[in-house]
C-alpha cells in the first residue's frame, strides 16, 4: 500500500466514525462508546505489557480516580464537566508519577503484585472515605441526560489518541528504550538507557489515558461505587481485549474490544458467566496461541505488517 493512499483510508475511516452517531441507533451508540473506551485503555495496557515488560494489575486505580475526580469536581465544586475531565486526567497522571517511585523499583512479577496491592489500598481507602460517599457510592446527577451522541465523541477521541500514542511511542526514542527494557532490563541499563525515566514516562502516559477512560465512563454510567470503580475486573477486561487480538499489536485490541462488547451484551443477564468465559478464553489463547488471533490471521494472509500493527 502506498503511503498516500493509506492516509486517505485513515481520513475516510475517521470521517465515517465521526458521523456514525448521526445515523446509528441508541443501542449501537452505547456499544460503540464501550468499544472505544475499552479499546483506548487496552491499547496502552498491551503496549506497556508487551514492549516495556510492565505488567500492571492495578490500572483500575486510574479508572476509579478518573471517575471519582470528575464526579466530585463537577458536583461539589461546580467546575464545568469537560474541565473536570481534563483535571482528572492530570491528577491521574500525577498519581501515576507518584506511584512510579515506589512501584517501578519493583521488577516484573513484583511490579504486577505491587500495583495490585496499591489498587486494593486505594479501593479500601475510598470505601472508608465519607467525603466521596464511602461504601454507599456516589450518584453523578449532573451527568444525567447527557445524550450518548455527545459522549460518543470523547470516547472516539480517546481511542484514536490511544492508537496514535502507541504508534508514536513505538517508533520514538523512548519506545526504543522501552523495547530494550522489555527485552532485558539489565542490558538496557548497561547500555545507558535511563530505565526509570523510560518506564515512568510510559506508565504515566498509559495511566493518563486510563484515567480519562474512567472519567468518560462515569459520565456515561453516572454511578460510582468503590468496589466496582476500583474493581480488578477492569484490568481483567483490558487483559482480555489485549490478549485476544495479540498483546502489543495495534489491530489486536480492535478485534478484542469488539468481541468483548459483544460478549457483554450476549451474557448480560448471567452474573459471572461473562467473566468466566473471558477468563477461559484468555487462558486458552495464552497457552495455545500466545501471539494472539490477529497475529495468526495476519501471518496466514501474509500481510507482512510491521511490529506495532
Amino acid at each position: 500500500m502506498e503511503l498516500k493512499s493509506r492516509y486517505i483510508y485513515i481520513v475516510i475511516l475517521l470521517a465515517v466514525l465521526t458521523s456514525l452517531p448521526l445515523w446509528v441507533g441508541g443501542f449501537l451508540r452505547d456499544a460503540l462508546i464501550l468499544f472505544f473506551l475499552y479499546l483506548a485503555a487496552a491499547e496502552v495496557w498491551g503496549f506497556m505489557a508487551k514492549h516495556a515488560g510492565i505488567v500492571s494489575l492495578g490500572q483500575q486505580i486510574f479508572i476509579g480516580v478518573g471517575g471519582y475526580t470528575t464526579a466530585v469536581l463537577s458536583m461539589y465544586f461546580g467546575i464545568p464537566m469537560y474541565a473536570s475531565v481534563i483535571i482528572s486526567g492530570l491528577l491521574g497522571a500525577g498519581l501515576a508519577g507518584l506511584l512510579s517511585f515506589p512501584l517501578l523499583r519493583l521488577r516484573g512479577v513484583y511490579f504486577a503484585i505491587g500495583t495490585f496491592l496499591a489498587a486494593e489500598v486505594i479501593r479500601l481507602a475510598f470505601s472508608g472515605w465519607e467525603f466521596v460517599g464511602a461504601g454507599k457510592g456516589l450518584i453523578f446527577r449532573d451527568a444525567y441526560g447527557i445524550p450518548t451522541t455527545i459522549i460518543y465523541y470523547p470516547a472516539l477521541a480517546l481511542a484514536v489518541i490511544s492508537i496514535f500514542l502507541v504508534y508514536l511511542l513505538y517508533h520514538s526514542k523512548l519506545g526504543f528504550g522501552l523495547r530494550s527494557i522489555g527485552a532485558d532490563e539489565d542490558v538496557a541499563c548497561g547500555l545507558g538507557v535511563n530505565t526509570f525515566v523510560c518506564k515512568a514516562t510510559c506508565f504515566i502516559l498509559a495511566s493518563l489515558i486510563t484515567t480519562l477512560v474512567g472519567a468518560v465512563n462515569v459520565i456515561h454510567h453516572t454511578y460510582l461505587h468503590p468496589t466496582s470503580a476500583f474493581s480488578i475486573s477492569w484490568t481483567v477486561n483490558f487483559l482480555f481485549v489485549a490478549v485476544i487480538g495479540g498483546v502489543g499489536t495495534i489491530v489486536g485490541p480492535i478485534i478484542g474490544s469488539a468481541l468483548f462488547v459483544a460478549f457483554g451484551y450476549l451474557f448480560a443477564q448471567y452474573l459471572g458467566l461473562s467473566l468466566l468465559l473471558e477468563g477461559l478464553i484468555v487462558l486458552a489463547i495464552l497457552i495455545a496461541l500466545p501471539q494472539g488471533v490477529w497475529s495468526a490471521i495476519s501471518r496466514k494472509l501474509k500481510l507482512n505488517l510491521k511490529p506495532p500493527l
Binding site: 505488567v55 481483567v236 487483559l239 468466566l276 477468563g279 484468555v282 487462558l283 495464552l286
Partner: peptide, 8 residues
C-alpha cells in the same frame, strides 16, 4: 497472566 486468568 495465565494464573491471573485462572484466578478469574
Amino acid at each position: 497472566l495465565v494464573t491471573f486468568a485462572l484466578s478469574i
